[in-house]
Design a protein around this nucleic acid. Sequence first.
DNA 1: CCTTCTTGTCTAGTATATTAAACGATATGA
DNA 2: TCATATCGTTTAATATACTAGACAAGAAGG
Lengths: 182, 182
Amino acid sequence: MNIDVGVRLRNIRTAFGISQRELARRAGVTNGLISLIEQNRVSPSVSSLKKVLDGVPMSLAEFFTLDLGAAPQAFFGTDELVELGNEQVSLRLVAAQRPGRQMSVLHERYAPGAATGEEMLAHRGEEAGVVIRGRIELTVSGATRVLGPGEAYYFASQLPHRFRNAGREACEIISACTPPTF
Amino acid sequence: MNIDVGVRLRNIRTAFGISQRELARRAGVTNGLISLIEQNRVSPSVSSLKKVLDGVPMSLAEFFTLDLGAAPQAFFGTDELVELGNEQVSLRLVAAQRPGRQMSVLHERYAPGAATGEEMLAHRGEEAGVVIRGRIELTVSGATRVLGPGEAYYFASQLPHRFRNAGREACEIISACTPPTF
DNA sequence: CCTTCTTGTCTAGTATATTAAACGATATGA
DNA sequence: TCATATCGTTTAATATACTAGACAAGAAGG
């Protein structure tokens, strides 16, 4: 449940082969604080954690992103793409069953008038894509734009977003998102 | 020199269109604390910042990887894609200048006879794509296959791989890779 | 003009992060 | 054996994060 800041910091410090006192000296804090943080006896303020990491040095973003993730199937015929959508919005997923993959790549098809729903979507991760046929109306954080063939998008998926095919022609998009939502 | 936690939090909260009190309710903290944090009057402890972000929801890693300042560009016209390739292999990159992005999404175009080179490529990460026009000959770990429109690939980039357009028609692919190689 | 609701801000009191200094343990050398 | 380091831990005092509640400003409706 809790982010284990203490263990993380200890791992990093020992990986650099420096003592609590040495790190404290570089960071401009006391060695006692380092000790307490590493034991999870206190939850450091962002400002002091930043000071500590500056002594390594390491950014807060790097600190909180510690992890990563095979020779499975590499080629996929059209019939090997897994169909996920409905009649209005077709989603063909590449490498659906691949364990531990870091992205979802989709061939999307929006029928005329189709949309991702009435509500705005919002979830973790990032998504991007290129329109290859037709036109799509995309709204991100209140901003709306219609994209045509060759045009593209890239946004953080936390921002409220919605896709809608406002035209009369079907619209196709190749898209990718990470981490894999589908 | 300090990370502007307050402005970040305010940007995120307003992007979601919720009030300080609503966020506080979801996060299980007081609205006053949200106010103080957003004004940078206090530097929140990691534990309380995590509580607040859980209300969005957003991870600490995502929070600190968000780029500061204005909302990044979400829409890209064809002329806003950055051209990276040569005359044989054209690579149009989406969101090239976006700092901290987690993927590269490309519109690739292989002229007849064009290839990624004589040597096999091998690097970190994963890559995937969908062919939208023409045919491409893809070799991964010794296995070779020709993919046509609607067909796709997904493989770990450490595996030796090579793309070649063996046909007479230009071939277009929309591809994605993570982490961003381009 | 009134309410009544919502917004963000501020203040006094309390909980907790942080400091300064001490402690015990381990190691090295005279 | 006795120093003299350095290591991580602990404690009491202090600085600061956090809470509960009040405040002023704006909007909606009577």
